[in-house]
């Protein structure tokens, strides 16, 4: 079943300057999809359309069988959550605790369950000590962790992560990625927007955007080695694949090394 359907969706912030142009994209329930693309290619705009924060100038978006409109957007938000690229855009509460609570209040989660969830997810992202602190007074990476906890706590069927780990240290990033894998195994549909190919490897499918158009949608494994497509959108190959291409170019034919490098590029 397709949990997300975008049918011929276009969008412009200013008249006649389309930022997204004729987007057709279906995502299956339980799928993990990565969206890649150069700065300004339209990734964040696409994610804001999916959560109904922006309205398509043309086309239709269906989330969990709900066709997005002004009337349905509230209902749809119970199914789809987003961690914004800039965590500051997400904070509304005076304290970290209020902030995580805010989303849950909107979902009318009962009081005692709310307390439980706040505690659980604050621990998950290692921010339990900071529950009484003001979100704006956190370090960049701590803000990202809190923003992630806030969305996880809502337990929606679909979660979009818009460069949500860009300010985390390597270990912290790995931890969140492991958790994304776990959620995905439990059936949550995940969309990650990233510039990190090591993150993209983990997903089922990759969508590459360039100047508001989809230039490629395919299985992660296929897009990963497609140097031509990647470079069109300011992306680069993983290191083992760069080496592989180099050896090929130099006519160094060593099957063992080649298959080893290919395997290596698929493991994190």
């Amino acid at each position: 079943m397709d949990i997300i359907q975008m049918k011929n969706v276009s969008f412009s912030y200013q008249q006649d300057q389309p930022v997204l142009d004729g987007i057709n994209l279906n995502i299956k329930k339980g799928e993990w999809v990565t969206i890649l693309g150069h700065n300004g290619s339209g990734k964040s705009t696409l994610s804001k359309l999916l959560i109904g924060l922006l309205k398509p100038s043309q086309g239709e978006i269906i989330i969990d069988n709900i066709t997005l409109s002004r009337e349905t957007v509230h209902e749809a938000r119970k199914h789809i959550g987003i961690v914004f690229q800039n965590p500051d855009n997400q904070f509304v509460g005076v304290t970290v605790r209020d902030d995580i609570a805010f989303g849950l209040e909107n979902l009318q989660v009962p009081r005692n369950e709310m307390v439980e969830r706040i505690d659980k997810y604050a621990h998950k992202v290692h921010m339990a000590e900071y529950l009484n602190k003001e979100p704006h007074n956190l370090s960049g990476g701590q803000k990202q962790r809190v923003a992630i906890a806030g969305i996880l706590a809502m337990q929606t069927d679909i979660i979009i992560f818009d460069e949500a780990t860009s300010m985390l240290d390597p270990k912290g990033r790995r931890m969140i990625l492991d958790y994304m894998s776990q959620l995905n195994k439990e059936g949550v549909t995940i969309i990650t927007i990233t510039h990190d190919m090591k993150e993209a490897v983990l997903s089922d499918r990759i969508v590459v955007l360039k100047k508001g158009k989809i230039i490629k949608v395919d299985k992660a494994k296929s897009v990963l080695k497609d140097q031509e497509t990647l470079e069109k959108s300011n992306l680069e190959l993983l290191l083992p694949l760069k080496v592989l291409n180099y050896l090929e170019k130099e006519n160094i034919d060593n099957e063992k090394v080649r298959s080893y490098l290919w395997e290596l590029s698929l493991t994190r």
């Binding site: 150069h38 700065n39 860009s166 300010m167 510039h195 190919m197 470079e231 300011n234 680069e236």
Partner: peptide, 13 residues
């Protein structure tokens, strides 16, 4: 301060 977080890879390089 973290100038390359959020930049596309070719832009970062």
């Amino acid at each position: 301060d973290e100038p390359t977080s959020g930049l596309d890879p070719l832009g970062r390089n």
